[in-house]
Design a protein around this nucleic acid. Structure first.
Length: 423
RNA sequence: CGGGCCGUAGUAUACCGGUAGUACGCCUGCUUUGGGAGCAGGUGGACCGAGUUCGAUUCUCGGCGGCCCGACCA
């Protein structure tokens, strides 16, 4: 893609209404446009990153579930059926539900903030025999929540991207088996997103759904709003919310001996057990012809929040440093002395060859000086910069700079392609 | 939702009870071209409402919006 065709520009200064590093850098780089507190539009660069993250999530989820897309609107009836219309904290409902539908009491639908009420009837319709189970559906969708205090850029928004997966099982054992599978799947996803080594399964409170613990995936992050008690040797952590004398005994863990660190919740997995199947009277027929309640689990992961966490963790004073797996492009090609026709032709040829090799290239074709191009390149944070200029032309090679380390090398085009294949 | 701070061009910031200045951006032209260029000219602004006042961007009140702390948080 030509940088002149991105239709965004970088900013030299951070917006004054953002303190969070992720929001500052993503706005400065032209990835995001802020609409209101906790609500951002994704611009061309930002959308590419989001799609890379969601692509990885999708690839892994496809191994253990089927993708669907549920509606954002839903009728009130199923919410009345589970009792959540009134039991769930009203602040977590959307404005649509609070002010339009409920206050006026004249609407029969709401903008839903979670999807158990929709997925359970769907699963019920198609899976009524023990032969049909287990099944798992997932979606990647924009979620809306009336967050009372949106903050920290992409880390806590009123509108955000979420992958939610729901599984249905004939009994608790099968649910547990699948639950472990999702744990592994999540770890693979975070590894591929290159935050895996800093992401820990964390015991947390069960919330509405269970008296037992739920599991969160917490990534170490100074800007994160959770505090976890970390046991690095066993690669497990405990959310501050469950720290108590009682749980210390129950889990046989000395919390006082553990490291306390800030972290951001990037995923969570919940055993729902029979809460929702009971509400919808979702039973299946077993081998003996008897009706049995279905066991459910739900599993969330926030791609847009992950994007914010990656920026928080991997940026430096010059800008963002994307891991290759989520970077908007593989290579940032910087053309200098654009008025020199030979340089221009050389850049064009390199661009063509890289594209042909399947490399994703952002070509800075703008009529700008070197300093500005380098500064923008550092800010945007594409993993590899390749400079084409009179200097490199006379050397017969290209200058190649790794964003993360600043390591520079002069390479030929075949060496460059080899390098990109290798990474 | 409680508390604190804040709201001035596209962005970041000054000043002021007498309708606003700077920098960057943007536009024109010339020069320049490996780390955010120089010169010249130009463009563009007080969140909304009420009150005080001869006069309000400035003071007061209310609203709306933003950030932070706390509470909350499938």
């Amino acid at each position: 893609m030509l940088q002149s065709q991105l239709f965004t520009k970088t900013r030299r200064e951070a917006p004054k209404d953002e303190v969070a590093k992720n929001a500052q850098l993503l706005i400065r780089g032209g990835y995001l446009h802020k609409e209101m507190a906790g609500v951002y539009s994704f611009l061309p660069l930002g959308l590419r990153v989001l799609q890379k993250i969601e692509g990885i999530v999708r690839e892994e989820m496809d191994k253990i579930g089927r993708e669907i897309l549920m509606s954002a609107l839903s009728p009130l009836e199923p919410w009345k059926q589970t009792g959540r219309l009134n039991s769930v904290d009203v602040l977590m409902r959307t404005l649509g539900a609070n002010e339009l539908s409920l206050a006026k009491n004249d609407s029969s639908y709401i903008l839903n903030y979670s999807n158990e009420e929709l997925i359970t009837p769907i699963a019920q319709q198609f899976n009524q025999s023990y032969k049909d189970l287990p099944v798992a559906y997932y979606q990647i969708q924009t979620k809306f929540r009336n967050e009372v205090r949106a903050k920290s850029g992409l880390l806590r928004g009123r509108e955000f991207r979420m992958k939610d997966l729901y599984s249905f099982h004939r009994d608790e054992e099968d649910l547990k088996r699948y639950y472990e599978k999702v744990k592994d799947s999540y770890q693979t996803i975070f590894d591929r997103l290159e935050i895996g080594t800093d992401t820990f399964i964390t015991l947390a409170s069960g919330g509405d759904f269970t008296l037992d613990f739920s599991h969160e995936f917490q990534t170490l992050c100074d800007a994160g709003e959770d505090i976890i008690y970390l046991d690095r040797t066993h690669k497990i952590a405990y959310n501050k919310e469950i720290i108590s004398e009682e749980n210390s005994k129950k889990l046989n863990v000395d919390f006082a001996a553990l490291e306390q660190v800030h972290a951001c919740e990037v995923g969570n997995i919940f055993p729902l057990n029979i809460k929702f199947s009971k509400a919808f009277n979702y039973t299946y027929t077993d081998e003996e012809g008897k009706q049995q309640l279905v066991y459910m689990g739900c599993y969330g992961l926030g791609p847009s929040r992950v994007m914010g966490v990656i920026v928080e963790k991997l940026s430096d004073e010059k800008g963002i440093v994307w891991p290759r797996s989520v970077a908007p492009f593989d290579v940032h090609m910087i053309e200098l002395q654009g008025s020199n026709e030979e340089v221009k032709a050389e850049a064009k040829e390199l661009y063509r060859e890289l594209i042909q090799e399947g490399v994703e290239v952002l070509w800075d074709d703008r009529d700008a000086r070197a300093g500005e191009k380098f500064a923008d390149s550092d800010l945007i944070g594409i993993p590899l910069r390749v400079v084409v200029s009179e200097k490199t032309l006379s050397a017969g090679k290209f200058e190649c700079v790794e964003r993360k380390t600043g390591k520079t090398a002069l390479v030929s085009i075949s060496e460059l392609i080899g390098l990109l294949r290798h990474v």
